[in-house]
Amino acid sequence: MTSLQHAEPPSTPLDAVRGTVPARSWAEFEALYREHFRFVWRIVRRLGTDPQLVDDVVQDVFLVVHRRLGDFQGRSSAKTWLYGIVRRVVADHRRTQRRKPGLDTPGPAEGDLDAMTSGEQSPQASVEQAERVRLLHRLLAELDDDKREVFVLSELEGLTMAEIAEALDVNPNTISSRLRAARREFEAALDRVTREDDAFEHGVEERRPR
């Protein structure tokens, strides 16, 4: 998009320092970012990251990606490799967050959901959708960490058992039984929540804390 034609070359000293690193690496990084940003973002959200911290967490993920690009080369699946990074970064942030009481805001906020849905739906539909997404996060939050990640990767991201097993470095049988248990818990939680409060089907009533 930018053509650099004459007298003013694009060089800066930092460019040059970078110049000793294979530029291919940067291209690979850009490609990974372009292709998998959405995956990383969704996963970070769905693993229960405070919406206000999603930016930071996703940035951290990609900084690690950049640093460890060499580890990726030759691996078959970017998603399984990326997920290994995501879960560590998310866990780190969660630990840090616990030490900062001020940031302990329970339940996801909906700021970016509004931004996301605006323009595509009527305000009412948008609010309902935001409500549903909030419910999803609430249900996911009820699962323990092991079950949540398997559930998200399988049911929402469509990864296969083999891929999840590779991403988590866990036996596929273990993954299967975790997924089975996660499904049963999720179903039960959805039933319970919708019995308690059917806002997700009928409207936007104020949700009471459980």
């Binding site: 940003f37 959405r38 973002w41 969704r42 959200r45 769905r46 970016d112 959901l113 931004a115 996301m116 959708q129 549903r132 997404v133 419910l135 999803l136 929402l156």
Partner: peptide, 9 residues
């Protein structure tokens, strides 16, 4: 129904 609910902008 919530599949696309966490898409980034």
């Amino acid at each position: 129904s919530v599949q696309d609910g966490d898409e980034p902008t």
